[in-house]
Nucleic acid binder design. Structure first.
Lengths: 346, 346
DNA sequence: CTGAAAGCGCTAACAA
DNA sequence: TTGTTAGCGCTTTCAG
């Protein structure tokens, strides 16, 4: 069973390479008869195009756009961005390049601009980390109409025909978080630390996490008093004051949870006021991992954001080059539990 | 900055494509002078060969051999083998194929035969899951002398110039295991369930795990009495009897650990004799996960064996096609902690 | 609607 | 030691 080429098909059908190529790519301008002849032979011989030859002859370079929030080093989205580099390996030989387009995660306006910029570059595919429901849907509409495939990471939105989604189940992650915080035993009081500006975003993933958390508590630790405290990520001093005031008022609280990647913000305070606490947060920022290793943070729920963007890129590349659909559209990824004894090789 | 081709180089150096190709591939038969000229221009222009053109012209297919134990569905090595499929995606466009060569993990003779069979097929690279120290080293020697790159998964051996290793740190995994078993509090008694024939193998990964486990117990739970029980994986009835006898004699033991993937073997007994226990095992076999979800098993330490073979294959492919060395030779991978609340999307 | 032909960038056999 | 040449399998004009 030698591999069949376009020449074989041309010969067998009595047509020319050119015509065969036209039916192969639905380029039209082919009579029904020729079309059928070619299709029949293809099916019969199980023809598979040679990718190398095709790409060599084509000789162009496609680009996949990555649309994510601006990120300073060490932050969640910085880790996510690392997935781009990972993906490069597999992409280079396919002559696909990636390019980041960043937006301010607190400004819909900025997001819109980034979208426009993406479109200008006429990408072959787009990875989106959506924060603004409406703006995202408008953008996806446009991509859809241009026939550009796109995938979501982190948060899934209802949008027409997204290619794939990679992220963790938000509700369940909150549920798990509660299980880690309580270690299975009912508790009497707990504190949720929240970030001030997060409320402004239209699609805050922590909403679902809180819901999952609350449900677990209702089921396994009824009667627990849960309080919230808002802190300003830009203002460490104010954060300290807020925590100080809180613990003056409620000294008995020793279970603390933060539903986003910012648990590290309260670590300095906690370390200056040591106590026997359980503290649970999310995501493997280096600051979080350090606090975990020091014992200040009890557990972290991590989600490998690099993997998410890596896989999203990969699914787009597969679609673009091979016309292959991902095995699953929605890919809920594993929630990693990190404690001090398995944090080292993470 | 247009992309420079072999023709540009030929033109610039006043030599021919043929000669340029020869220096590009160290094929010899080139004068020092020509060699230098070409190298200089290459450096200057930053020439990068076009992979597609190269592979198209070459037109051959390389194969990577995977040398692992025989595996029935649902077992550890069966999961590992899934990594092969995952790798295929990225490999197909590189015209690399993979092929499994399996051996009986309790027979050195069988391993030797598998090695011979691998060599007959003249692979471009080999992934090895080593169980027999001496035989493996002999084999690696041979690969080395033939210039065939190879990588280890699961267990690392001292062998000359292996390309890469992917696995979890064995000692630390035992340490972590102990932390999960005791959940931080000292305990009085514990049981280690072991598999009979494992002692026969020359490189039993559970040895290091036990060492890590013991050290943790010494440090955090001194005075704990640790007992061992051997069971026969082929004989469920005998396993039951053994467990029965054990718990008749030591009814107070309610902390149980199994250092390999076979914790599922004791699950039927445990479920017929319910009690409040902590049971910790390794690896995400579906039987183990099921027991975890039912609550019979408290925690599982998993290591994504598919990832390990996937990455090992990938590192070999990179080496074979791109001449690229892996970023790190030894890759210690994360140990996943599985409990009932994060087992579902695993 | 179809065929012919000129590449894409590189390899490898053959001459010189 | 070097140059020439014929492809590898596919794409893409351009005539017809």
């Amino acid at each position: 069973m030698e591999k069949v080429t376009i020449n074989d098909i041309a010969r067998l059908t009595g047509l020319s390479k050119g015509t065969v190529d036209r039916v192969l790519h639905n380029r039209g301008e082919v009579s029904r008869k020729s079309y059928q002849k070619v299709m029949d032979i293809i099916k019969e011989l199980g023809y598979e195009p040679n990718l190398y030859a095709s790409l060599l002859a084509r000789g162009e370079q496609r680009t996949i756009a990555i649309l994510i929030p601006f990120h300073e080093t060490g932050t969640y989205w910085d880790i996510a961005a690392k997935g781009e580099a990972k993906a490069q390996n597999g992409l280079k030989p396919l002559s696909i390049v990636t390019r980041q387009f960043c937006y301010n995660q607190y400004s819909a306006e900025s997001f819109r601009e980034a979208c426009a910029s993406v479109l200008e570059n006429n990408p072959a595919g787009v990875v989106i980390a959506p924060m603004f429901q409406y703006e995202t849907q408008v953008f996806c509409q446009e991509l859809q109409s241009r026939g550009i495939p796109y995938s979501f990471i982190d948060t899934k939105l209802e949008a027409p025909g997204y290619l794939s989604f990679y992220g963790i189940p938000a509700y369940k992650s909150g549920y798990l978080c509660a299980a880690m915080l309580t270690s299975g035993e009912p508790i009497r009081e707990a504190l949720i630390v929240r970030i001030m500006r997060d409320k402004e975003r239209q699609s805050d993933p922590t909403v679902m996490r809180r819901a999952g958390f609350m449900d677990y508590m209702l089921e396994h630790s009824p009667g627990c008093t849960i309080r919230s405290l808002f802190i300003d990520p830009e203002d460490p001093a104010a954060t300290d004051d807020a925590l100080d005031a809180f613990f003056k008022e409620f000294p008995g609280v020793n279970h603390i949870v933060v539903f986003n990647s910012r648990v590290h913000l309260i670590v300095p305070y906690l370390e200056r006021h040591p106590a026997n606490r359980r503290v649970v947060g999310f995501d493997n920022l280096s600051a979080n991992l350090a606090a975990l290793k020091r014992g200040t943070v009890t557990a972290l729920i991590a989600q490998r954001p690099e993997e998410q963007v890596h896989m999203a890129i990969q699914s787009l590349a597969d679609k673009i080059i091979f016309q292959r659909m991902p095995e699953r559209t929605d890919n809920y990824m594993h929630m990693d539990i990190l404690i001090r004894y398995n944090a080292e090789d993470y």
